[in-house]
Write a protein that binds this DNA or RNA. Structure first.
Lengths: 347, 347
DNA sequence: CTGAAAGCGCTTACAG
DNA sequence: CTGAAAGCGCTTACAG
């Protein structure tokens, strides 16, 4: 298929040395004179030599390749995160094998196996479930990997896995706090998939706020979503039909908030006049004029970037293998969907 | 680092056969009895054998890996396309190495080299420039690759490169046609980067429409953009300040249309009452209620999917090496940003 | 400072 | 139907 590629043996022949000498010269290892090295480098360039990274990977057990597992490449949340991973990888000379699971644990398991078979040096996984059965073996094998976005809640794994997550707890807390201060008493909450640690944490933050103020929440106002726009859309339509409908909705992710938004607008309800709306994540769509979604900002890019950095550090063992746990800040971003600028806080 | 992996030699030892026999058994090749094969397969499973795909790739010169080169992973246009690629790759058992160039030709060249070094079986490239200097060598080496989204306009490459593109010409034609029929005479056009074939084609479609009707375009109303929201934002602000400002703006990509939209809204201009706005691509953001961007729909997902399919077919040579050229349809999607529902066509 | 040997994990071709 | 040999392109020891 391809015209035959130049190998170090071809270079060796021209340079009149053995091929291991070529290897050492090209890799700047000691054991070959400076003059000869330059000559070899020159010949390599002239012949248009490109190292065969597959062979290199086989012999060195280092591929300079990282696996990245995300849920959905159409979801801005995951692409922001992927962008950070890409950046960190690029800075250190790694390439990314991208795997998307589309919410399937089976698919995740499949990719975990494939990535190992492909000899990646490490894996960045953003999709683990709270009781994920598939990462134990990575821990046992001491295969380098880092969890971002979601972590396992399995106690036996405590202190064994590097992670970088967002402060979902604070996000859940701050979101409901904002709505409550604006005077809302009937606040509906649409959570993420409750088998994911981030959704669990957000909900806990929300509940703790209510607990702190000794407020009881109407269970009818609590809905489990799955971070998809569609389910949030449907949930919102149901919430509005309640005998005592909510005056505010806290969708615990901007994608869901946008789904809620569509539902409310379809029903000719005004945001925030009829129903206030807040999300979490601060994705780009929410920033558009006319959307103006109030939300809790999360450092998605940084999460990907730091996750990859930590993984690379682990792989390159520049540092004693200390487990790193990082939680990135969550901050309220006030736009127009809650009505703060019109009314201000009432309590 | 990892606990030692099981290899075919380990299996061979247990099964009391030679390791090539194990290889043949596991790969369902003739030359090993059915009973023995099943025994070997069983042992492999028990030992938790995972083939080393790196070694396999080295010896077979087939990695079941594809390189995908896109501009920007934060851009919905490219992620839609990547989603199609992913799907096709997954269906045929390939994985994707993702490379993002961020509009840099140097970066593109770098990734082209790296991908070959990494032994990918083929490359899907969505970022070639009209006079791209870096793909000739792929053609010369007969390295399998397919252009999507953009093609080279170099005549010497005609009929040598598979491609799947969108019908940008029609998009450019239909966009201005819609505005013209609505009664607009001063229509501004913000093009994509004019070193890219898709931008060139869109602009040609637009110009041809005007030519067909023998309409002269005020050159002040033509702006070169670069598919980024920011430049379009700035261009729009300038256009509006013109002595004779346009009554409609045709941004030849939805990202730019959204930039224009922000600019107009910042200036308290209404869309479409004060200025009509149309884009190209039909990205998701334009579909949100309140954005309601009229646009020309492009089959981005299909483009990625078909591109990858064609590439895989080429790689697997299931078909005589006929060059495939596919142009996907462009259709007008009427929403609210041009005012059609209020006024209808005037001519 | 240099060369020849061995090996990474696999597959292909060639004897028995 | 099975085994032993050779080799993919590279690197890492180990002699001289």
């Amino acid at each position: 298929m391809e015209s035959k590629k130049i190998t170090i043996k071809d270079i060796a022949k021209v340079a009149n040395v053995s091929h291991p000498t070529v290897s050492m010269a090209l890799n700047n290892r000691p054991g070959v004179g400076e003059k000869k090295r330059q000559e070899i480098v020159h010949i390599a360039k002239q012949l248009g030599y490109q190292p065969n990274l597959v062979a290199k990977a086989l012999v060195s057990n280092r591929s300079y390749t990282l696996g990245l597992i995300i849920n959905n490449i159409s979801d801005q949340f995951y692409t922001d995160l992927a962008k950070g991973v890409e950046k960190a990888a690029d800075e250190s000379g790694y390439n990314i094998i991208l795997c998307t699971t589309n919410d399937s644990l089976n698919s995740q398991k499949k990719y975990l196996d494939i990535l190992q078979s492909r000899g990646v040096d490490g894996i960045i996984i953003s999709t683990v479930s709270a009781r994920d059965p598939h990462i134990n073996f990575l821990v046992k094998e001491q295969f380098p990997f880092v969890c971002i976005n979601r972590v396992s809640l399995d106690r036996s794994l405590d202190n064994k896995i590097d992670y970088v997550i967002l402060d979902n707890y604070s996000a859940g807390y701050k979101g409901i706090e904002h709505l409550w201060k604006l005077g809302h008493d009937r606040i509906a909450v649409i959570t993420g998939s409750l088998d994911a640690s981030n959704a669990i944490a957000s909900l806990k933050g929300t509940k703790d706020f209510l607990l702190d103020l000794q407020i009881k929440m109407d269970p009818k106002l609590l809905r489990e979503g799955n971070y998809s726009r569609k389910t949030a859309y449907n949930a919102a339509k149901q919430l509005v039909k309640l005998k005592k409908p909510p005056t505010a909705i806290f969708a615990q992710d901007d994608n869901m908030a946008l789904g809620v938004r569509e539902a409310l607008l379809d029903l000719d309800l005004r945001i925030p006049e009829d129903i206030a709306l807040i999300g979490i994540d601060n994705i780009e769509m929410g920033t558009l004029t006319g959307i103006d979604l109030t939300t809790i900002s999360q450092e998605k890019y940084e999460m990907g970037y730091l996750g990859a950095k930590i993984l690379i550090k682990t792989i390159e063992k520049k540092v004693p293998a200390m487990v790193e746990k990082i939680v990135l800040a969550a901050n309220l971003i006030v736009r127009k969907s809650c009505g703060y600028s019109q009314c201000g806080y009432k309590r």
